[in-house]
Computed example of a mutant assay.
Amino acid sequence: MTIFSKIIASEIPAYKVAENEQFIAFLDIFPVKKGHVLVVPKIEVDKIFDVPDIYLSELLLFAKPIAHAIEKVFPCNRVNMITVGLEVPHAHVHLIPTDAPDDVNLGNKKLSFSKEEFVAIQQAIIAAL
């Protein structure tokens, strides 16, 4: 069971911003930018292109309003979606507010926020949805 499956099962807390029967979206606790969100299918599949087709198409539709909410809360040129998938063996995408190409480099220094700051970021995104 991956850490994402444990979050989905509510065994591990997360700063959730959206959820439905197929997906969950929550703040990355090791963000490269303020407003960095992970979108995760609830089925545990390692590689994004091994995810069933219906999930792949629905993933974009689920992520779209979240990306718009992130843009409203954290003004940026755009919200980029990247898939790396090496850090957790559970398919997922990163939604990252972006102004420069280096903003989506997951090798960048991770930002650190207090619990209160994470909650404020979470609530701001939820309010913008």
Rank of each mutant, 00 (worst) to 15 (best):
I3Q: 12
I3L: 12
S5T: 15
S5N: 14
K6Q: 15
I8W: 01
I8A: 04
A9G: 08
S10C: 10
S10N: 14
E11F: 08
E11C: 07
P13V: 02
A14W: 03
A14P: 12
Y15S: 10
Y15M: 09
K16T: 10
K16S: 06
K16C: 07
E19F: 08
E19P: 02
E19S: 04
E21V: 03
F23Y: 12
F23K: 04
A25M: 03
A25G: 05
F26Q: 09
F26I: 02
F26C: 00
L27E: 04
D28V: 04
D28Y: 01
P31S: 04
V32H: 06
K33F: 00
K34W: 08
G35S: 08
H36D: 10
V37K: 07
L38V: 07
V39Y: 08
V39F: 02
K42R: 13
V45K: 09
V45A: 03
K47T: 01
K47M: 11
F49G: 01
D50H: 13
D50I: 07
V51K: 02
P52R: 10
L59P: 02
L59V: 01
L60D: 11
K64C: 00
K64I: 00
A67T: 10
H68V: 02
A69V: 05
I70W: 02
I70S: 05
E71A: 05
V73M: 00
V73Q: 02
F74M: 08
F74T: 00
F74N: 01
F74L: 01
F74R: 04
C76M: 06
C76A: 14
N77S: 15
R78D: 07
N80I: 01
N80V: 03
M81L: 15
I82D: 02
G85V: 10
L86D: 07
E87L: 14
E87I: 13
V88G: 08
V88K: 00
P89Q: 14
H90Q: 00
A91K: 02
H92N: 09
I96M: 07
I96T: 05
I96R: 07
P97T: 00
P97C: 04
T98S: 10
A100I: 11
D103V: 08
D103T: 08
N105R: 13
N105A: 13
G107H: 13
G107Q: 14
G107E: 11
K109Q: 14
K110V: 06
L111C: 11
L111Q: 13
L111R: 10
S112G: 00
F113R: 11
F113K: 11
S114I: 09
S114F: 05
K115V: 12
K115R: 15
E116C: 03
E117W: 04
E117K: 11
E117H: 12
E117A: 08
E117G: 10
F118T: 01
F118M: 11
I121H: 04
I121F: 04
I121Q: 03
Q122E: 06
Q123N: 14
Q123K: 12
A124M: 06
A124E: 06
I125C: 07
I125A: 06
I126Y: 04
A127D: 13
A128W: 03
A128C: 05
